[in-house]
Amino acid sequence: MTSPVSLRPDPAADPEAGPAAGRGPGAPGRSVRRGWVRRFGVRVLSLLVLLVLWQVVAAAMRNPSFIPSPRAVWDQLVQTSTVHDGVRGYSGHLLVEHLGVSLRRILVGSVLGVAAGLVLGVVMGTVPWIRVVTEPLVTFVRALPPLAYFSLLVIWFGIDESPKLWLLTIAALPPVAVATASAVYAAPAGLVEAARALGATRWNVIGDVVLPSALPEIFTGVRLAVGIAYSSVVAAETINGVPGIGGMVRDAQRYLQTDVVVLGLLAIGISGLLIDGALRLLEHRFIPWRGRA
C-alpha cells in the first residue's frame, strides 16, 4: 500500500526554501531590525575604542596643550554651554550660538553656491561654446584654496558678513557646476531625440528629460559642495568671526586652548555628519532608483 502523495514542498529539495522558510511574514522586518541593531552596535563600539585610544594617547603625552584628554574636552563642552562664574559660554556666546551662526553662514553660502552652480552647470552642459569658455575658469576657481582669495574678498566687501558669505558661495559653486555640466552633457541621446520628436521644446527637454537623468550626479555635487563649505568655515571666520564656531576655534588657537579647539572641530564634524545624513535622506527620497537600476 503506497503512502499518499504530499503536496507540501520539501525544503531539502527546494533551493528557494532555506533557513528562512516557514518563518512567517514578519521575518524580513526582523532581519532588517537585526541588521540595523548590528550596525549601530558596531558604530558605538568603534566610538568607544576611539575614546579609549584618545585617553591612552593623551595620558602618554602628558601635555594638554598638545593633546587634551576627553575629560578636558567634556569640561569645556559644559563650560561653553552654560554660564560659569559669571562668564557666558566662550567670548560671551554659548557653544550652540557659535554653532548656529556658523550653520547659518554655511546654509546661506551653500544655497547660493548650489543655485548658481546648478544654473551654470545646465548652461555649460547644453550650450557647447559656453562650456568651452567657462570650464577653464570653473576649474581654476575649484583648484584655489579658500584662504587664497579670502583676503581679496575682505578688501572688496569689508570685514562683516559679506566676505564670509561670498567665500562660502564661491567655494560651493564649482563642484555643483562641474557635476551638473557633466551629467547634463551625458544625458541619454535617445530620450532627448524622442522628446524632440514628440514636439517638446528645448526647456521641456531640459526639465523633463535631462535634469531627471542628471539628478544622481547633481546630488553628489551638492554633497561635495556642502562639505567644502564646511571645510571653509574656519577660513571664512578668521576675521571678525566671533560669534561663530570657526571664529571660536581660531580665537582658542591663539591662546593655546587646545581643548576648545578640539571641541569646536568635533562640533563642526558632528553637525556636518547630521547635515550629510539629511542630504542622503533627500537623495533617497527624490532618487529612489539610484543603486537599483
Rank of each mutant, 00 (worst) to 15 (best):
Ser3Asn: 10
Ser3Gln: 11
Val5Ala: 15
Asp14Phe: 09
Gly24Arg: 06
Gly26Glu: 13
Arg30Tyr: 05
Val32Pro: 00
Trp36Val: 13
Arg38Gln: 14
Arg39Ser: 13
Phe40Tyr: 10
Gly41Phe: 09
Arg43Cys: 15
Leu50Ser: 14
Val52Thr: 06
Trp54Asp: 01
Ala58Lys: 00
Ser65Asp: 13
Ile67Leu: 14
Trp74Ile: 09
Thr80Lys: 07
Ser81His: 04
Asp85Trp: 12
Asp85Tyr: 11
Tyr90Asn: 05
Gly92Pro: 05
Glu97Pro: 04
Glu97Tyr: 07
Leu99Met: 05
Ile106Cys: 07
Leu107Asp: 02
Val108Thr: 12
Val108Asn: 07
Val108Glu: 06
Val108His: 03
Ser110Arg: 06
Val114Asn: 09
Leu118Met: 03
Gly125Val: 03
Thr126Val: 05
Val127Asp: 05
Pro128Gly: 07
Trp129Arg: 11
Val133Thr: 08
Val141Gln: 01
Ala143Ser: 14
Leu144Pro: 05
Leu147Thr: 03
Tyr149Val: 04
Tyr149Ile: 01
Phe150Thr: 12
Leu153Asn: 04
Leu153His: 01
Ile155Ala: 15
Asp160Lys: 03
Glu161Lys: 10
Trp166Gly: 00
Pro175Thr: 00
Leu191Glu: 14
Val192Gly: 14
Arg196Tyr: 05
Gly199Phe: 02
Ala200Arg: 03
Val205Gln: 09
Gly207Glu: 09
Gly207His: 06
Pro212Asp: 08
Leu215Pro: 05
Thr220Ile: 11
Leu224Lys: 05
Val226Arg: 01
Ile228Asp: 14
Gly246Ala: 03
Met248Leu: 09
Val249Asn: 01
Arg254Val: 15
Leu256Thr: 14
Val261Met: 12
Gly272Lys: 07
Leu273Lys: 14
Ile275Glu: 13
Gly277Glu: 13
